[in-house]
Amino acid sequence: MSLLKLQKLALTPKGGQTRSNTRDNKAALVFLGPWLLGSVVLVIGPMAASLYLSFTNYNLLQSPKWVGAGNFARMLTDTRLHHSLEVTFLYVLIGVPLQLGAALGLALLLDRGLRGLTFYRSAFYLPSLLGASVAIAVLWRLIFGGTGLFNTILGLIGIESTTSWIGNPDTALSTIILLHVWTFGSPMVIFLAGLRQIPVEFYEAAQIDGATTFQQFRGITIPLLTPIIFFNLVLAIINSFQAFTQAFIVSAGSGGPSDSTLFYTLYLYQEGFGAFRMGYASAMAWLLVLIVGACTAINFWASKFWVHYED
């Protein structure tokens, strides 16, 4: 909104003085310069290049050879690609609701005027800062290994287990989803801010009318929070599709055990840099753009039915 205002200011002629108008435009260009340069060189340029490369056979070391839709045709028969899509969708479908649920739950607890709120907020936010880091992924290996902390704790409560949770294809993905859920801090902070925006009068009026806490939650909190939920949902889905670091570190770059954590981005990386199939990897990147774009579009369409904007 503020951006729009700025643009209006820049575009509105000031008493018809064309000279100052041009000067303003020049000034705007100067200020926009760094951003413009950055986005052309670092975003738009590489994107255009990868779009071109997605129609070529490119091994990084020799010039790309045009193959038309060859890369996209190969996707149809690439079983590892299909498997990586399966893994990634599973991760998104399970991880996102769990993470947002945890974030909302914690935000509701913290919103009750707790003493030391700042401390708790920071404490719960911390995993978000660390979650995608190499150190935490390494820690995860230690916790969910065969002789790790998790099994030790299970042992303390009487369940003997020597299963290696990250070494077993049936459970490895779950541990990475858990790691993702644990990084609920940033949606939580956004939920908290949203909860703070709901006027107290609504709750007071509801209490006078005899509404229970649950009724208040369902009738006031949730509807007024829907824009925030929507925002968090959109970002969480997009972020989850791009998950890479956790799987890369926990599986030592292999996506193992036996491809059970082969995320789409991890496979893309293996194809591009490991197997010298950068053309195919570029095509994969664009397929991901299409998938995420489609998911987001569906999200926006569906939002009409459940998100309430109050103006």
């Binding site: 997009i238 990147a285 995420v292």
Partner: peptide, 12 residues
């Protein structure tokens, strides 16, 4: 925000 995130993918 969504557009920025999505398009950021291809340039990665």
């Amino acid at each position: 925000a969504a557009t920025a995130f999505v398009l950021g993918l291809a340039g990665c």
